[in-house]
Nucleic acid binder design. Structure first.
Lengths: 251, 251
DNA sequence: CGTTAACTTGATAGCATTCAACTAGCGTGG
DNA sequence: CCACGCTAGTTGAATGCTATCAAGTTAACG
């Protein structure tokens, strides 16, 4: 049987969460993914929408956000290939936030009316999806801590740590770097800081020899130092196979 | 059949999330709840624990929190009767945060090995629980916005709005007030502020005639004004029956 | 190349923290 | 019954982290 090529990222992601049987892998590959190219900075779903489908990110980067009445924006999470950022729409009718692309992205849409019976027919996959949304929530918790109690310096460092580990977990990061088409303004909206201060703080992190972030490429130059600066512990990501302690800088 | 008295709060809570059949209500009432009294300020679960049971709050108030290396604390959520704050432990082995009582509380513990087959036998209840954890996540998202992008004044107002609506939804608040054994230091840890500034800001809210908070009792004196100050919209709470627009001050 | 978005840097302002002292409430025990 | 001690709450003054404002500079892209 030819596996559905679009299922690759999702399978890889799920394997970081649970262990799948071959039958489950086949079942997932049998889902009808309708792929679409989306340009940078486009909304996939808007706040107050009532989606009838879920978005699976096949390639590229997306983020969830909320806008305030006075125009301020808060980014709530970043998402990468294999993520289904609006999986909750399966059980929560109204979107309480928006979903947009960071750079250009490839996305597959899966209708709710297909996903719902599918999950009822595959309780273990259903549990895996539930577990995924629980990890989602765990990351939100860490973000509350990040924005609530950490200094700008630690806060940014922590965001960078998290993204590095998450991208490594699904094989999207090299040993000490990853592609990340994020702007400083978006980093500001993710950390609750101003873009200007993000700039200054990134300079600081760079001057301390911890990272290098330019031209959509993030280089981790001192992984241990970055984690220390952040107070980062990967526990909250609940990965099946935790990242090696330091081997990441090997090559 | 005599309904399990301990199931009351849980049933009431679930009815704010989904509509239950009588059979489902009976099934839930048939669960073996082992009730226990817990004193104020006690940990129910600690970070890094690997619980083998879930806590159902029967009475009283609890909160989730994380501690940082430098001793700072961030409170992640407040919980009331009917909530199962550590439901995620069913699918996430390790606790990434702690759970403690605010005032004295009555709690029922339900072993995972009972809950797991129970949910597999009752897919609709399972979905309701999933939905509950998704609403949990929606509230975390709003908290990220709250600490990330709102002023101290709006931030506190928003927290108060949220708790008022949530307590009203399960019948634990009067028309314009509710019992809430929270200290200003805990409010500070929930909003990412200092206790001193919480004090000043509460005074401001009081002086503006919006609220009155003293001796563990929160009085909403100007519900519309409080919502305006907070920029509060209840959408993210995903309630089955939204709160009336203003009728709350009726009596 | 020209145009625009993204990034950088300096100066100033402000909200919230910290430090410090003091007051009020409340339970305990002499 | 009031003294004591502790926790929670209150208020003032000074500091500081981060935002805002304002000008540049660099990079991206057609």
């Amino acid at each position: 049987m030819i596996a559905n090529a679009h299922a690759g990222p999702l399978l890889r992601k799920l394997e970081t969460i649970v262990t799948l049987t071959q039958g489950e892998r086949d079942a997932i590959a049998g889902l009808p993914f309708m792929a679409r190219e989306i340009k940078a900075g486009q909304d996939l779903v808007r706040e107050h929408d009532r989606p009838s489908q879920c978005c699976l990110i096949l390639e590229g980067h997306t983020f969830r956000y909320k806008l305030l009445a006075d125009g301020k924006r808060q980014i709530l999470s970043f998402h990468i290939a294999g993520d289904i950022p609006d999986l909750q729409s399966l059980h929560l009718r109204i979107m309480d936030h928006g979903l947009a692309t960071l750079g250009a992205a490839r996305v597959a849409f899966i209708p709710h009316e297909i996903l719902r019976p599918f999950l009822h027919a595959h309780p273990r996959i259903s549990d895996a999806f539930w577990r995924d949304t629980l990890i989602d929530a765990a990351i939100f918790r860490e973000w509350v801590v990040n924005v609530g109690r950490r200094s700008a310096y630690s806060r940014l460092a922590h965001l960078l740590c998290e993204n590095f580990v998450r991208m490594r977990a699904v094989g999207l990061a090299g040993p000490g770097s990853f592609e990340w088409p994020v702007t400083q303004e978006q980093l500001a909206d993710a950390t609750g800081l101003s873009a200007v201060h993000v700039n200054r703080t990134l300079t600081e992190l760079r001057d301390h020899g911890l990272i290098d972030l330019a031209r959509h490429k993030m280089v981790v130059k001192d992984w241990q130092g970055l984690q220390d600066a952040a107070g980062f512990e990967h526990t909250y990501l609940h990965l099946q196979t935790p990242p090696e302690e330091n081997g990441t800088m090997a090559s």
